[in-house]
Simulated assay, not measured.
Amino acid sequence: MAFLGLRKWPTPIVKPLWPFMVAGSFTVYLFAKAQESGIRSAQWRNDARNPYAAELAKESLH
């Protein structure tokens, strides 16, 4: 008998999905690193379309 919709043995959620969570976090990390290296590349460092150009210019002066 279920009490307020709770079962005696809860349905596993995290256990079968852990490979997808690990792969998703790894993918997010790799995309973030790729974006960071693209923003800081010499080709895009001084481009007007780069939203971080002012910050990169301040860093290169030091």
Rank of each mutant, 00 (worst) to 15 (best):
K8V: 08
M21L: 15
P51Q: 08
D47F: 11
T27L: 15
R40Q: 10
A34K: 13
L61K: 15
A32R: 14
V22C: 01
P16C: 07
A48P: 07
G5Q: 05
F31Y: 04
A23W: 02
Q35P: 00
T11K: 12
D47S: 14
P19S: 03
A57V: 06
S25H: 06
W9C: 00
F20N: 04
K15L: 13
L17G: 00
Q35M: 07
T27E: 04
S37Q: 12
P19Y: 03
V22N: 00
G5F: 02
I39M: 05
S25M: 13
L56E: 01
A2H: 09
N46V: 06
L61R: 15
K58S: 05
P19N: 03
L6T: 09
P51I: 14
Y29L: 15
A57W: 02
S60P: 00
S37N: 08
N50R: 08
V14W: 09
M21I: 15
K8D: 01
G38E: 03
L6N: 08
F26L: 15
W18V: 12
L61C: 05
W44A: 09
R40C: 02
R7K: 14
K8S: 01
E36F: 09
P12R: 13
A42V: 04
S41A: 08
E36A: 11
A53E: 05
E36R: 15
V14H: 03
F20S: 08
L30T: 11
G5S: 04
S41R: 13
Q43I: 12
F31L: 15
K8F: 03
R40N: 10
S60C: 03
P10I: 06
K15H: 03
Q35N: 04
P12C: 05
T11R: 13
T11I: 14
A57I: 06
S37K: 15
A2V: 13
P16W: 10
L30E: 04
V14L: 12
L17Q: 06
T11Q: 04
P19R: 05
K15S: 05
L56W: 01
R7L: 07
P19L: 06
A23K: 01
F20A: 15
W44H: 14
P12F: 04
Q35W: 08
H62K: 15
V22Y: 00
R49T: 07
P19A: 04
A53I: 01
P12K: 11
S41E: 05
N50D: 03
